[in-house]
Computed example of a mutant assay.
Amino acid sequence: MSEAGQAAWGPGGRRHVLLAVHTGREDIVDLARSSAARLARAGMTVRVLEDEAEQLGIPGAEVVPADADAARGAEIVMVFGGDGTFLRAAELARYSHAALMGVNLGRVGFLAETEPEAVEETLTAIERCEYSVEKRLAVEVEIVDASGDVVAGTWALNEVSVEKAQRSRVLDVVIAIDGRPLTSFGCDGVLFATPTGSTAYAFSAGGPVVWPDVEALLLVPTNAHALFARPLVTSPDSLLSVAIPPDGNRARVSADGRRAFDVPDGGRVDVRRAARPVRIARVHPATFGDRLVAKFGLPVRGFREARRHDPGQELPPSRNVLMRDVVSVPAPGTAREEVHGGAADHDA
């Protein structure tokens, strides 16, 4: 689900952009500073987080505490860093109308919208409100004790992980869907993931890749000792539960790898769709399939089209589908045609 940037932000009043920056690298800090200067020249108010302000040293920036009010009234939360920085920024943007715009300066950076070389194009889109906003499903979590009382709660954009507290012992779990028991087994843990998180921890655990506009919840066991321990894809309105027997191993809950809680003996973890989605701004027209190809370096030519014997058939490193470069495969003995945003170049 998406909406136009102009519709999401009215033209009246001063526009605010909050920066969330991985300040541990000087190149990231320099890029954040230059981006802030350009946004300020365009008449936008730049906010920085209190714990990052000194390292960023951006003149004229509005300094705000890193709490639930940091992004209130902001149009964009611009993230400079990897997926970890993006998830930290999502905590700030969650209870506001602000959309997250990520510049990938990490490794894979699946949540980010753009790469560093395309920052100027991204800033132009922000200035002109030429972006769309995707609404990504998030999940809410409740930790329930043996008497049925809720003792803790949190939320996640990617996944909730229920893990064994003692590495030397197997975690016994009972899985229930919509309050009805489904199966039980011993395992290292259970993942409850969103479509956005299907390319994160759940992907590493053997879960399916789900397109982010699909509304669904994922349940992925990790290292389960059972025949029926396959990843499950359920309705987005389902209630997913995992109960921990009182005589079993202790368990803990981790939300997006950032917020952790212990599960009481004989307790239960309930996961359901969150009432509020997370808003992510998009500038580039690349599809999710394009992102999979670019981020994972997937082969796209097909083995039957190859006329060589080496194993690699990936796109050349200089080509990036996120930058709208398309490489076509020529027939044997013909010239190669490369298409760059609609213009064709012919090489002999």
Rank of each mutant, 00 (worst) to 15 (best):
G12F: 10
G82P: 01
F86D: 03
A255G: 07
V21C: 03
A74P: 09
G73D: 11
C187F: 03
L92P: 10
S328G: 08
S204Q: 07
K164W: 14
S96W: 02
A274R: 01
V160Y: 00
R94N: 06
P116S: 05
F80I: 07
D325N: 08
L292K: 04
L49E: 02
L49R: 04
E115G: 10
P316K: 01
L227W: 14
T234E: 04
I28T: 15
A224M: 05
E121W: 04
D247R: 13
E142P: 01
S198R: 05
R250Y: 05
L322T: 03
R258I: 11
A152H: 07
R180Y: 11
A138F: 06
V141Y: 06
V162C: 05
I58T: 03
G102A: 13
L87K: 05
V209R: 11
R336S: 14
D67W: 09
G102E: 12
E50M: 06
G57C: 07
V278T: 09
P181E: 01
T114E: 02
F192W: 06
L39F: 07
V77W: 01
L87H: 04
F110L: 04
E75M: 07
R41W: 00
P311E: 10
V79S: 04
V64W: 06
P316Q: 01
P181N: 01
R169V: 08
E50Y: 04
L191Y: 00
R336L: 13
V253E: 13
N249W: 00
A251H: 09
G207P: 09
D262N: 03
D178Y: 12
L227I: 15
R94P: 08
F261M: 01
S2R: 12
K295N: 12
F261H: 08
V103T: 03
L31Y: 12
L292T: 05
P11D: 14
I28C: 10
Q313H: 13
G297Y: 07
R33H: 08
A99F: 00
P181Q: 01
P236K: 09
A205K: 08
H340M: 10
V278Q: 05
V144Q: 09
A61T: 02
E3M: 08
F192G: 06
P236R: 08
V283G: 13
G206E: 04
C129V: 02
H16E: 15
A68G: 11
R38E: 14
T154R: 09
G24M: 08
R180D: 13
A331T: 11
S161I: 04
A260P: 00
V214H: 04
P231G: 14
R41G: 01
R319H: 03
G109S: 11
G10R: 05
A200C: 04
G267T: 10
E3N: 03
D345L: 10
F228N: 11
A335R: 13
T334V: 11
P212L: 07
R47M: 05
A343H: 15
P317R: 15
T183L: 15
R259L: 12
A205I: 10
A71C: 02
